[in-house]
Amino acid sequence: MSTETTLSQVPHVGYLQLGVRPHLVANECTQCKARYFDRRNACASCFGSDFVKVDIPTEGVVRSFTIVTFASPGIPVPFVASIVDCGGTSVRGNIINCEPTPEKVHLGMKVRLATFTMGADDNGVEAIGFGFEPL
C-alpha cells in the first residue's frame, strides 16, 4: 500500500483538477492550440510535439445532448450526456443536478462544472466525479 492511499480524494479522471475551485485541465499544442484531454505523441492537427497544460473555463453552453434511458448493465439510467462548449473548447460531460427530461434540458443552456462523490474505496479514498449543472 503506497502513501498515496492516505489522500482522502482522487479525481475520476486525470484531467479533473480537484481543490477549492475544481476545473478541467487539457494538454494544449504550443503550435496550433489544439487541446486534448489525454496524452498525445504529436498533435492530431499540426503534428507538433510540444504541449502545455491549460485550464479549461468552468462555464459553458450545451451544444448537444441526449437523455440515455437504455445503457449497459451497471450504468444507472436515465442520465443526460452532453457536449458543452467551454469558451471554445468542447467538453464531454453529463448534465447533473437537473431533471433528465427534454423539458428541463435544452440546447444552448448555460451550465457550469460541478463535482460529486462517487463513493469511497476499501481504503477510504473518495473518488470525485464531475458534470455540468444549470447556471
Binding site: V13, S64, T66, V68, I75, V77, S82, G93, N94
Partner: peptide, 23 residues
C-alpha cells in the same frame, strides 16, 4: 488514457451508439 479510476461511460457522457448519434 484518461487516468480514470472508474468507467466513464454513463458518468462522463455516453459511449453507446444511440446516444452518440442522438448528439
Amino acid at each position: 488514457r484518461f487516468g480514470a479510476v472508474a468507467g466513464t461511460d454513463g458518468r462522463i457522457g455516453t459511449d453507446n451508439m444511440p446516444g452518440t448519434f442522438a448528439q
